[in-house]
């Protein structure tokens, strides 16, 4: 029971402060700068099909780190590499939760 309550709490907290809007805005801004055409940004869109190349993605992670003061990739032992837009948002949301 205790575990369930914890899970609900952390989910709802993450939902309230989700980084999704900031991340999507930054994706659009990097794409515009690098003159890339973006696919519609849905949660299940694979990052490699989004229209961003590796350099764009590296710039995105860099900007988000400046913006939010942390990078989920930089933490030691982080071995998850996000596959979709949803995975990426979850990485940031979980790092904050």
């Amino acid at each position: 029971m205790h575990l369930v309550i914890n899970a609900v709490n952390s989910n709802s907290r993450a939902a309230i402060v989700s980084h999704r809007p900031a991340i999507l805005a930054e994706i659009r801004s990097v794409a515009a700068e690098q003159e890339k055409t973006l696919a519609p940004l849905t949660d299940d869109l694979p990052l490699l099909d989004s229209g961003l190349d590796s350099l764009c993605f590296a710039i995105l992670v860099f900007r988000l780190e400046d913006l939010m003061g942390f990078g989920p990739f930089a933490s030691a032992g982080a071995t998850r590499f996000p596959r979709t837009i949803g995975d990426l948002v979850a990485l940031y949301d979980e790092a904050l939760a």
Partner: peptide, 10 residues
């Protein structure tokens, strides 16, 4: 350079 977890460096 600044270290990048994606490209090694930027």
């Amino acid at each position: 350079a600044r270290q990048s977890p994606i490209m090694g460096a930027l």
